[in-house]
Computed example of a mutant assay.
Amino acid sequence: MKPLFVLTFLLNIAFCMAQTYHFPEESSPHEGTWLQWPHHHQHGTEYRKRIEQTWIEMTRELQTGEKVHIIAYDNAEKKRIEDLLEKNKIPLKNVDFKVYPTDDVWIRDNGPVFVKDDQGHVLIEDWGFNGWGGKYDSKNCDEIPQRIGEDLGMKVIDLNEEMVNEGGSVETDGKGVLMACKSSVISQKRGSVRTKGITQQEAEEMFEQYYGVSKVIWLDGVTGLDVTDMHIDGFMKFINHTTMITMDEDGLFEMGLTDKDINTLYTASDAEGKEYRKVYLPATKNKVKTAYGKQLEDKGSYINFYVANKVVLVPNYGDPNDKMANKMIQEQYPDRKVIGIDVRNLYENGGMIHCVTQQQPVGSFLK
């Protein structure tokens, strides 16, 4: 090899090794929001009917300030959804459709993770998805990031062989810190294994490179408590790089957290060691009852909200604490309008608003 060629080759390798990516804060400007629309092909028509009003209301509110990218199972479903939105007098100017088969609705966990490279270009990270440790079918949903990347002409970093990672299992402050539960990321307990044999150090190295963080705060979490093995976005969220919102102590105990994890959460500090300002929300006053009358066993969390360009969509339960939670969240986002979205029927299936949304940041594509 000629010396100049060797030098160029080595510099290219060094650049690739040094390249890290940044996961923008959810509150930073969006190009749009991605939704996987409920269908009947996996869980039946009654399932679809019970939860899709939540999608109608999300679309109504989101389209006022950004694009809404709806994933429909097939062309028949696409036509049905279009008719449904028109019937509900929702403008379609900011709504578009992609047709891909999906297993379910939880795009936060299986969908694309949109990040930016060192030059500010937007690209997709395609982490592995295995149905929360093999609990549910996942083949269709696992392919969604690649399908979106192909359709958009956007570069996709394929991490499927490196690590399984669900979007709801991590929260970042936008300035170097990521928080997660070991139970839903690195646990090796049967029925919850995401990545066989992965160590804490290996997971941290992946997060450092692909989320652009320098500090990972781990909670133990509880394996097997729910389908997700305790996703962090059920009970804490970063408002910005100085403030986190979580639940009061009674609410955290209701969610199943231990004293140790509550202490870790309440004393959490940023990358420079400065303790975050904390905002504490209650859980619902009562255990959640679905809109069709089924009494559930758990109270609801308001933390699983979604921050869009103009609105903040907050899970509501027809509960006396809805109004208080909405007001407290509104105080954190004075430039956006808080909208309560009824999630009672969705909550029966283990998730809320953040679980079924995925943001695409503003920026030019890396192809």
Score class of each variant (00 low, 15 high):
Asn304Lys: 11
His22Ser: 09
Gly174Met: 08
Cys16Leu: 12
Phe129His: 12
Ala14Met: 10
Gly300Glu: 06
Glu166Ile: 10
Leu265Pro: 13
Glu297Met: 08
Ser184His: 12
Lys287His: 11
Ile51Met: 10
Ser214Gly: 15
Phe305Gly: 02
Phe129Trp: 13
Val338Leu: 08
Glu208Thr: 12
Glu31Thr: 02
Cys16Ile: 03
Ala18Pro: 09
Thr284Asn: 13
Met255Pro: 01
Asp137Met: 09
Gly32His: 02
Leu123His: 04
Asn263Met: 05
Thr243Gly: 04
Gln332Pro: 08
Asp342Phe: 03
Ala18His: 13
Glu57Val: 00
Gln19Lys: 13
Arg48Ile: 01
Ile341Ser: 01
Leu281Ser: 09
Gly212Gln: 13
Lys337Arg: 14
Val164Thr: 05
Asn326Leu: 14
Pro315Ala: 04
Asp158Pro: 10
Glu125Arg: 09
Arg190His: 07
Gln200Asn: 11
Asp158Trp: 13
Leu10Asn: 10
Lys175His: 12
Gly197Val: 12
Val193Asp: 04
Glu77Pro: 00
Thr267Arg: 14
Lys67Asn: 10
Tyr302Leu: 09
Leu281His: 06
Lys299Pro: 08
Met58Gly: 00
Thr102Met: 08
Glu161Leu: 11
Gln201Gly: 04
Ala203Ser: 14
Asp137Glu: 11
Asp158Gln: 14
Glu61Gln: 15
Val222Trp: 00
Ile107Trp: 01
Tyr210Gln: 07
Tyr280Arg: 13
Val307Met: 02
Asn88Cys: 07
Leu4Ala: 06
Asn286Glu: 15
Glu77Gln: 10
Met244His: 11
Glu202Lys: 15
Arg147Ile: 00
Gln42Trp: 14
Lys2Gln: 07
Ile353Trp: 06
Arg344Gln: 13
Gly300Arg: 07
Thr243Pro: 03
Glu31Tyr: 07
His22Phe: 13
Thr172His: 03
Glu143Ile: 02
Arg50Leu: 09
Glu162Pro: 10
Met352Arg: 05
Gly212Met: 14
Glu275Arg: 14
Gly273Asn: 11
Leu123Met: 04
Met244Ala: 04
Asn130Met: 10
Ile144Trp: 07
Gly134Gln: 09
His241Ala: 02
Ile232Phe: 06
Ile124His: 02
Met1Thr: 09
Thr45Tyr: 13
Gln188Val: 00
Ser184Trp: 04
Thr243Lys: 15
Lys182Cys: 01
Asp109Thr: 02
Gly221Trp: 01
Ser138Phe: 15
Asp229Arg: 08
Val288Gly: 12
Ile329Leu: 05
Val356Gln: 05
Pro320Leu: 06
Tyr136Ser: 06
Gly133Val: 06
Ser187Gln: 14
Lys67Val: 00
Asn75Ile: 03
Met236Ile: 00
Gln19Phe: 03
Tyr280Ala: 10
Glu143Phe: 07
Lys139Glu: 13
Tyr136Asn: 07
Val307Thr: 08
Pro24Lys: 05
Val311His: 06
Met324Cys: 04
Trp37Leu: 01
Asp83Thr: 09
Glu26Leu: 11
Leu11Asn: 03
Arg50Ala: 03
Gly318Asn: 05
Asn12Gln: 10
Asp259Gln: 15
Glu125Ile: 11
Tyr211Cys: 08
Lys155Thr: 01
Met324Trp: 15
Ile262His: 12
Lys294Ala: 09
